[in-house]
Design a protein around this nucleic acid. Structure first.
Length: 267
DNA sequence: AAATATACCTGACTGC
DNA sequence: TGCAGTCAGGTATATT
């Protein structure tokens, strides 16, 4: 489900409701997520005050006076803000209850997401992460990939190279930059890296503006879908005419993920 | 060091 | 209608 724009959409929706609020308790109904939710997680955050809600890549970071709560939504995680208690549904695994009475409810059918405590930002998961897409520039991307033989798309998806880019936006950025996803990264000229970064940033910005992409089940913290799916130019369009040159869009598998591209105008 | 495979899950959809 | 098989927005970890 959630790539950088979706996580940022959720972050922006939650921020005004959470910052400055106090955590009354944390209720864990299902602790078997990507990693077992630590037994002491509720104890750690009971009574904590949320001082900021940040994002790094696809990670949501709840800063509190009792340490950092790191939440990742995996493939199917959702966070929804409830005004008051409602009976939990299937897959509603965790409730973060505020003293204001509002409840942040975590729903995750596939359970690839996780919740964990960290003393601060010095957590291995965060430290391994590459730069934010909005902070990188063409020359820096070029430097990071110029000795790598892997297809450029694989590297866009590698969080150690660049944080937060997932399959949809990797496909879209390569299409808009007219670069073949399968190009070995070391064959990209500096000028192409510049183009790729510019297109990637523009796409991410637009997607955030439109509240993210809802293919099947993404919802923001208010339960509303995004609308960037209407602006997708290649993702999911196998066999349809390329919007630039009318050539049928081709689907291939790269790094085990569906990859869509125009074999004619992407080079 | 870098590339590839595997693992973790449920649900929606396809084809027989 | 049922069943088996495939695929899905992620990423750490193990293996080569």
């Amino acid at each position: 489900m959630p790539e950088l724009p979706e996580v940022e959409t959720i972050r922006r929706g939650l921020e005004p409701h959470l910052v400055g609020r106090k955590i009354k308790c944390l209720e864990v109904r299902q602790s078997r997520l990507r990693w077992l939710v630590a037994e002491d997680l509720p104890k750690r955050f009971k009574g904590a005050e949320i001082s900021a809600l940040k994002r790094r890549g696809k990670y949501l970071l709840f800063a509190t006076d009792r340490g950092l709560l790191i939440v990742h939504l995996g493939m199917s995680g959702r966070l929804k803000l409830l005004r008051s208690f409602e009976p939990p549904d299937r897959h509603d695994h965790i409730d973060l209850v505020l003293t204001s009475g509002q409840i942040l409810r975590y729903h995750d059918p596939r359970r690839f997401g996780f919740w964990l405590w960290s003393e601060d930002l010095n957590h291995p998961l965060l430290e391994k992460l590459g730069p934010e897409p909005f902070e990188i520039e063409g020359p820096l991307l070029h430097k990071r990939i110029r000795s790598r033989r892997q297809p450029i798309k694989n590297l866009l998806l590698d969080g150690r190279v660049l944080a937060g880019v997932g399959n949809i936006y990797a496909n879209e950025a390569l299409f808009r930059a007219a670069i073949l996803p399968s190009r070995p990264a070391l064959t990209l000229r500096p000028e192409e890296c510049g183009r790729l970064v510019a297109e990637l940033q523009e796409i991410l910005r637009e997607a955030i503006e439109l509240g993210g992409t809802t293919l099947r089940d993404f919802q923001n913290s208010e339960g509303q879908p995004g609308s960037f799916q209407l602006a997708l130019k290649v993702y999911g369009r196998e066999g349809e005419a390329c919007l630039r040159c009318q050539t049928p869009i081709v689907k291939a598998i790269l790094a085990g993920r569906s990859t869509y591209f125009c074999p004619c105008c992407q080079r």
